[in-house]
Simulated scan of single mutants.
Amino acid sequence: MNVLLVKDDCGRSRKTCHMPTHTAIIALTKGGKQLAQRLKTLVPGSEIIPNKGKIHQTFAQAWQDHDSLICIMATGIVVRSIAPLLQDKTVDPALVVCDEQGRFAVSLLSGHLGGGNALAQKVADVLGGQAVITTASDVLGHTALDLWCRDMGLAVTDKQGLTRVMAKLVNTGSVTLYSEYPLPPLPQDIIPSRTLDAADLLVTSRIRQKENIVLLHPKALVAGIGCNRNTPAKEISEALDHACRTHQLARESVRNLASIDLKSDEPGLLAFAHAQNLPLDFYSPDQLNQVEGVAASAAVLRATGAKAVAEPAAILSSGGGPLLVQKMKFPNVTVAIAEILQPFPTLF
C-alpha cells in the first residue's frame, strides 16, 4: 500500500492510502492458454498465472495475491479447487469462469461486492460472448443492496441482517429506509420512510439498539487527534474507540482523522491511519486558531503555537460541523469528534 501526501483546495495536507488491484488469469489447456494471452491484452491490470504444479496450489497463491480471478477451465475444477479457500463474500476475490472458446463468462463468486458480475460482463464484451449472472437482484432487476451500500460509503456491521433485508427486497419488490442525513435520490425499490419504526434500514452514525432495523453507517464523523510525541498507534486507536463507545457513535462512521501539521510525521498517528485506511488532514496553527468556540489550552499553545488541536482540527475537516464529542483527554492522546452534516455531497 502506498501512502501519499497531497494538498487539497483548502490548503490542508492530507495523507491518503491507495491499494493496487490485479486480475489473475489461470488456464490449463492449450486452447485456454491461447485465450488467456488474448484476455491479457484486453483486460487492464491482468496477468497470466502459470500452473507449474498442482492446480490447488496455483489457486491458493492467486487467491492471496489478486483481487479477481478469470479461470479458463471447467467449472467443476474451479469449485473443487477453491472450496478450502472460501471465507466470506466481503473478502473473497471475484471469480469468473470462462470456457476456452470464450462463449460464456460465468460470474461464480463475489458478484456484487467483489465485482464478479462486472468482470464477467467485461470478459463477455471483449470476447463477444455471453455473461452468465445468477444473482437474484440482477436477474429480477432490483437494487443490489450490498453494492449500493458500498457505493454510498455505508458500512454494514450486521451482515446477516442485510442479507435478510435483501431477501425481502427480492421477495416483495421494495424495502424502506430512514435516514438521519440528507440523501440523494434513492433507487425506486428503496422507499423513504417517514418514521423509524416502519423502516427496514437506518442511515445513522449512532449506535442504536433497534430490533429488525439494519444500521447503515455513513462516513459522517471526523476525529480530531492530538497526541504526545511517540505515542503508539495502539494507544491512539484505544482512545478513539473509547470516545466513540462513550458517546454511542459508530466507529465505522469515522471518515478521517485530523490534527496539527506538526504531527504530519508522527509515527504512531501515521501507523494508525495506515492500518485503518483513514485519510489524515493536517492544519497549521494559524488555521486552527481561527476556529471559535473551542476549549483553549495554554500548554498546547506553548508547545504548538495553536490554542487547541483536536477540536478545531475536527471542526475544520468536517466542513464546520458541530462537535459531537468535546475533547476527551487520555494520558497521551486527546480526541474530539465533529459531524459532517451532509456526508453525501458529491451525489447531489
Rank of each mutant, 00 (worst) to 15 (best):
K40S: 12
T41S: 15
T41L: 15
V43G: 09
V43Q: 11
P44M: 03
G45V: 09
G45L: 12
S46P: 05
S46H: 10
E47V: 13
E47T: 11
E47Y: 07
I48R: 08
I48M: 05
N51H: 15
N51T: 14
K52I: 04
G53L: 11
G53N: 14
G53D: 14
G53Y: 13
G53M: 07
K54T: 08
H56V: 10
T58N: 11
T58D: 09
F59C: 05
F59K: 09
A60M: 07
Q61L: 11
A62G: 06
A62Q: 10
A62T: 09
W63T: 02
W63I: 02
W63P: 03
W63M: 10
D65F: 00
D65W: 00
H66D: 04
D67P: 01
S68I: 08
L69W: 00
L69N: 00
C71D: 06
C71L: 15
I72N: 08
M73Y: 10
A74V: 01
A74G: 01
T75Y: 00
G76C: 04
G76A: 06
V78G: 04
V78L: 10
V79K: 04
R80H: 02
R80C: 02
S81I: 13
S81W: 01
S81K: 04
A83F: 09
P84N: 09
P84W: 12
P84K: 15
L86F: 10
Q87P: 00
K89R: 14
K89F: 03
K89A: 01
K89P: 06
K89T: 11
T90S: 13
P93W: 06
L95H: 07
L95N: 08
V96Q: 06
V96S: 04
C98N: 08
C98Y: 09
C98F: 05
D99L: 08
D99W: 08
E100H: 11
E100F: 05
Q101I: 06
Q101R: 15
